[in-house]
Simulated assay, not measured.
Amino acid sequence: MGMQQSAAPAAPAVAAEKASSAKPAITPKPQASAKSKKEAVKHGPLTTKQWVLAGIVGAFAALGLATAAVLIARGIAGIDGVESFMERYPGEYHLPESAPIGFPGWLAWNHFFNFFLMVLIIRSGMLVRHQKKPPAYWSSKRSPKVSINLWLHQGLDLLWLVNGLVFLVLLFATGHWMRIVPTSWEVFPNAISAALQYLTLDWPTENGWVNYNSLQQLAYFTTVFIAAPVAAITGYRMSAFWPKNMPALTKKYPIEVARALHFPTMLYFVLFILVHVILVFSTGALRNLNHMYAAQGSTDPAAYADNWAGLLYFALSLLVIAGAWLACRPMILASIARLFGKVSAR
């Protein structure tokens, strides 16, 4: 009896020892909360919130840089040597006596067509650049199959080239080339003076009806005689019209070179249009719009300041451009493209 009583508590002691030597139970870890939450949608490299924050920071940074540039420019303009330089070169030089004055009607129409086509070319070019799967394809007996967006882009390019050729012919036939082609080496110091005046916010006198300032003249010359030909030549190399049976020419002018130049040229045109529009509205909107859209003006810079004809024509042109912009949709493009070839889904 005594042995039985002493052996009884030994069993729970052995069980406790085994329990203590056993490995502790592993509890499942909770899943990361990030996986349970819906990931933020990204637009390119950033989310919507990040784009907004980046835009705000960028705006403040741009404002700070602009303020610093104005203060530095004002400090430079206040130097005695710089003041005498700006008095000698006020920002423009006298054109030849045979240079025409004013804007003829053909120039106003050509300006509108150029703006109209350029906006649509930029839009169609971005559609081509970012398309993953073309909505439709266009082909004809003479042209290979291309996406309908590329067909639109190339068709607009051809119209733009025709409009440009008409502009050049009339420009040299009427003598208006002297308005945008430098005729004196004084264009360069005057351009520096004009740039400094813009930076100080004490802008040069604006009277484009008679003469552009030298900075404007160089900008127009660069756009018409450098950027436009580069856009045409590189666009032709990238188009379906490039001859496939000339390997020697293709080797000398590889398509990679054309691609490397074509997109930056488009960015130049966007920047030019943006700056051009800002200056038009900030240096006398009614007067400038009368010059460009109504072909009305005077040698007196204050004239036509209360004439609203140019602004009305400009507003109508924006409605036309907006309508064409909205019309760049696959269904509408397909109905137009069928008039010139075959449209298919593949």
Rank of each mutant, 00 (worst) to 15 (best):
G175R: 03
Q131R: 14
R346Y: 07
R74A: 07
A309P: 04
E17I: 09
A62Y: 02
A324P: 01
F116D: 01
A8N: 14
K244L: 15
Q5Y: 08
H94A: 12
E92A: 10
P12A: 09
K244H: 15
A8Q: 13
Q50N: 05
F167N: 03
L46A: 08
P189K: 02
P330T: 04
L267M: 04
A7T: 15
A322R: 03
P12H: 09
M238R: 11
T27D: 15
A11C: 06
L289T: 09
I192G: 05
V181R: 01
V224A: 04
G297Q: 01
I122Q: 01
A240T: 13
P264L: 00
N290H: 07
T174C: 08
L289R: 02
A11N: 15
T299A: 12
A258K: 01
V277F: 14
P204F: 04
R74G: 07
S282P: 06
Q131G: 07
W325M: 05
I148P: 00
K49W: 12
L286A: 13
L271C: 14
G78I: 06
A337N: 01
K49V: 09
I255Y: 14
S33Q: 09
F241W: 12
G91T: 03
L159P: 02
G91L: 01
E83G: 11
S298C: 02
G235Y: 00
I101G: 03
L63N: 08
F263Y: 15
A136T: 01
T250E: 11
W109S: 10
F115K: 07
L107G: 09
W51S: 05
M292G: 07
F116E: 00
W160A: 06
N110P: 04
G78V: 03
P204T: 02
H130V: 11
I122V: 11
V343R: 00
R74E: 12
R123P: 02
V82H: 03
T48K: 09
D157F: 12
F340T: 13
F116I: 00
E39A: 08
K38W: 08
P45H: 05
L171I: 03
L152G: 00
F188C: 08
A66N: 05
I79Q: 15
D202G: 03
V41I: 10
M1W: 14
M292K: 10
A136Q: 10
F241P: 03
I336V: 06
V14E: 15
Y304C: 01
P264W: 00
S140A: 10
N290Q: 06
L201P: 02
M331A: 07
F103W: 14
L63Y: 11
V166A: 05
A77S: 07
V270I: 08
A22P: 06
A232F: 13
I226D: 01
H291T: 09
G91M: 00
E92T: 10
L267E: 00
R123I: 12
N307W: 02
T234S: 15
S344L: 04
Y93R: 08
K132V: 14
H153W: 00
W177A: 07
F281T: 11
L271H: 02
L170K: 12
A99W: 01
L326I: 13
I278T: 14
P12N: 11
V343M: 02
T200F: 04
L161Q: 03
V257Y: 08
Y313R: 06
N207T: 04
A32L: 12
A260F: 05
I79R: 12
L120R: 01
